[in-house]
Amino acid sequence: MSGVEALYPFLYPEEDDGADDDAPARVLAQVVASTREKVDEIAALREEVVAAHAEALAACAAAMAHSLAGGGRLFAFGNGGSSTDAQALAALFALPTADDPRSWPATALAADVATLTALANDVAFAVVFSRPIAAAGRPGDVAVALSTSGGSANVLRGLAEARRRGLVTVGLAGYDGGAMAEPGVVDHLFVMPSSSVHRIQEAQTTVYQVLAELTRRALG
């Protein structure tokens, strides 16, 4: 049974649902049920993650607020969908909000496609985050790393460089945290205990949005 068949076994007994007049209604009904299951899953995961990490979220937001209040900058990084989460996180600090008109210095490393592609082409993809941090990172800055597996080589190297340079390091990962959960890798670690990349990303979105909210309120 393929991965897809395992997810949707109800769809596979009939070989030819093209001849089945009930197929549209049946598949639609199953998709509706599947949607509800996924919404229930993320609701439960979000509650579990925030309950388990409430103290750590407050401590991390305090550390980020102290960094930014002291003139620090925030660097966010990840691959694929996580690179877009890094962009969204940076935007949550860089854009004024209804409660806070300030723009805080935050940037997503993968948004600089010139640097990203130059390093990937000329050196190696594993250094695309560590090199920019080596160039621009200062003690008191913040590095936020996102990796659903916790094992992305370039993300781990970015964190290692950030720690070496005295940045506050924050890591978001899924599953069991992977290599990111090893001792000495990251100061503030948040693990989403799920095996679904999508639910992990959704819980990570809640975690970094709550971090941004608490940090900006602390700065207010």
Partner: peptide, 19 residues
């Protein structure tokens, strides 16, 4: 650091309750 109000665990729990 002046000007920083310390966040609490309750702030995080309140945030998730709002969802």
């Amino acid at each position: 650091m002046t000007g920083v109000r310390t966040p609490t665990a309750q702030d995080a729990l309140d945030a998730v309750a709002r969802r």
